[in-house]
Computed example of a mutant assay.
Amino acid sequence: MKRIIQFDGLYGEADTDLPNRRPNGDYLFSERIETRSRTFDWVIQPHTHARLFQVFFLETGGVEFSEATQKRQLSGPVVLLIPFMALHGFVYTPDTTGRILTLSDTLIDALFPNTSALTTMLGSIQCIQAFDEPYSAQAIEHLMGQLNEELIGDQPEKQTMLHLGLQQLFIVFYRLWSRQNESVQTSANSIAIRHFRQFQQRVRQVGTTHSIVQLADELAITPVHLNRICQAIAGKSASQLVQEYVLSEACKYLIYTGYSVSEIAYLLHFEYPNYFARFFRKHTGLSPTEFREKQPAP
């Protein structure tokens, strides 16, 4: 049965390739886009990483970028931020150049804890296409190049310099992203941001098996307070965010796997397949089978 490909390490690396390269607390890897992509004839099949956050900076060329529910045609310069477990795939043009940074989840959490203003940006796939001074595409290229040089070098206080460089780079991303998304609630207080990030993480773990009351209770806040936080930061209720996550996962399974509708319902913790089918039709206007049949052949 076809399954969504998940890698513990980098794309194309089997478990046997990773005895000393599994993500750890300070895992950081830098590589050129063209180096790995050329090996796979410029096609990176849709896949996920359980514990890795990735930054793709496309300097030149173009790419068809696949997410769970859509495909986008992008051309350089563009930055893509891919969080843990987010489905992503690429079909590059052969003239593509750029750089990829891969960070472990623990490194991201250490650099940007729950109190960080960057929480909302880091929680989902982001596409940054507008580069305004002083943060030009050339400036991004320079910052990522500096990180690469530091990573392959052996200077004193290397880890400290890498951490500072990563924080600078991600703050630049945040400023560009904020300009691109002016509705982002940058004034949300740190406690609310922490609760929101914990809520996002818990939803990814439990899906629909927990009610909003249970999720709020785990955060030691009331459901009303949880909804206020979600509305302030994401502009949606807690229930809407849970439903969006489940729908995204459902579409991912329907497009990229051979699981039956009943199996997908089970994977998403629906009590009965018809409950899942009813949920899916309500949000898409199609049955799961109709949705799958409308997808183009691979």
Rank of each mutant, 00 (worst) to 15 (best):
Y135H: 13
Q201T: 04
L118W: 01
L143N: 07
E150A: 09
F173N: 02
F173E: 01
D132F: 06
E150K: 14
L122P: 07
S116I: 00
L101Q: 08
V213Y: 11
Q180A: 07
R204P: 01
E218S: 07
D105N: 08
F173S: 00
I125T: 14
V203R: 06
M121W: 04
C127I: 15
I152Q: 14
Q201R: 07
G207D: 10
A86G: 04
H142S: 14
L215N: 03
L215M: 08
F196W: 15
L151E: 10
P156R: 09
M85N: 13
T115W: 00
S136Q: 12
L164C: 11
I100F: 01
T93N: 09
D154N: 15
Q146H: 13
S190W: 03
E141S: 15
S136Y: 06
A130E: 15
A117Y: 04
T120W: 04
E157V: 03
T102C: 03
Y92S: 03
P134L: 12
T208E: 11
M121T: 01
E149G: 06
S178H: 10
L118N: 02
F173Y: 13
S136D: 12
T160L: 14
R175C: 08
D95C: 03
E149L: 15
G153S: 15
A188W: 04
Q126L: 03
Q126N: 13
E133L: 10
L122Y: 00
L80D: 05
I171C: 03
Q129W: 06
M121C: 06
R179V: 06
S190I: 07
D109F: 02
G165S: 13
L103E: 04
Q146T: 14
Q185H: 15
T208S: 14
V184I: 12
Q126A: 06
Q126D: 05
A188M: 08
T96G: 06
T120P: 02
V203I: 13
T209H: 10
T186E: 08
I191T: 13
I193V: 03
I125V: 11
Q214M: 10
L215Q: 08
V79A: 10
N148I: 01
S211Y: 04
G123Y: 01
D217L: 05
S116Y: 01
S178Q: 15
A139S: 11
N148P: 02
V213D: 14
F196M: 09
I128K: 05
A130L: 11
D95Q: 12
D105H: 00
I193W: 03
T120F: 05
D132G: 04
G153Y: 08
N114K: 09
I100L: 13
T119W: 02
M121H: 08
L176M: 12
R175D: 15
Q159R: 15
T102A: 11
H163D: 15
T186A: 12
Q126H: 05
S104L: 11
M144N: 08
I212G: 02
P156S: 10
E218I: 00
S178T: 14
I128P: 09
V78W: 02
I108T: 02
R202S: 09
T102F: 00
I100W: 00
Q129D: 12
V78Y: 01
L122T: 01
A192Q: 14
R197G: 00
G123V: 00
Y135R: 10
Q198Y: 01
L164R: 13
P156L: 11
K158S: 08
I152S: 13
A192L: 05
T186Q: 15
Q126C: 12
